[in-house]
């Protein structure tokens, strides 16, 4: 029993650590995403994602809409310019993290 407990604790501590690290990674990623967003997207989508409703509100994107996000950003849509070959996959990860950190749901 004792052994199990210890093993469990270790397991537990280990996974806690992993979760903590992941949260920190996500926060760093979102911070990087803010910078990319502020430079390239805010002029149309609003300061800190808060727009006036003239352009699509990115906070509406749901957790499972990453493919939609990626498709629209890479290929563009009407007056949304395409960013293929300009933004790198890591940039998209960062913007997505930033949007998700501020999403409506």
């Amino acid at each position: 029993m004792k052994r199990l407990c210890v093993a469990g604790l270790l397991l537990c501590a280990g996974s806690l650590f992993a979760v903590g690290a992941r949260a920190q990674d996500q926060a760093d990623l979102a911070k990087a995403g803010f910078k990319i967003y502020d430079n390239n997207c805010a002029q149309c989508h609003g300061d800190r994602l808060v727009g006036s409703g003239i352009t699509f509100d990115l906070r509406r994107l749901k957790a499972d809409e990453r493919p939609r996000f990626e498709n629209s950003v890479l290929n563009g849509k009407n007056q949304m310019p395409p960013w293929r070959n300009v933004l790198k996959p890591a940039d998209l990860d960062a913007i997505w993290a930033y949007i998700r950190a501020n999403a409506n749901e």
């Binding site: 805010a42 609003g46 808060v50 006036s52």
Partner: peptide, 8 residues
């Protein structure tokens, strides 16, 4: 309108 005046 898109940036500064939002969300007013």
């Amino acid at each position: 309108a898109m940036r500064t005046a939002a969300p007013d």
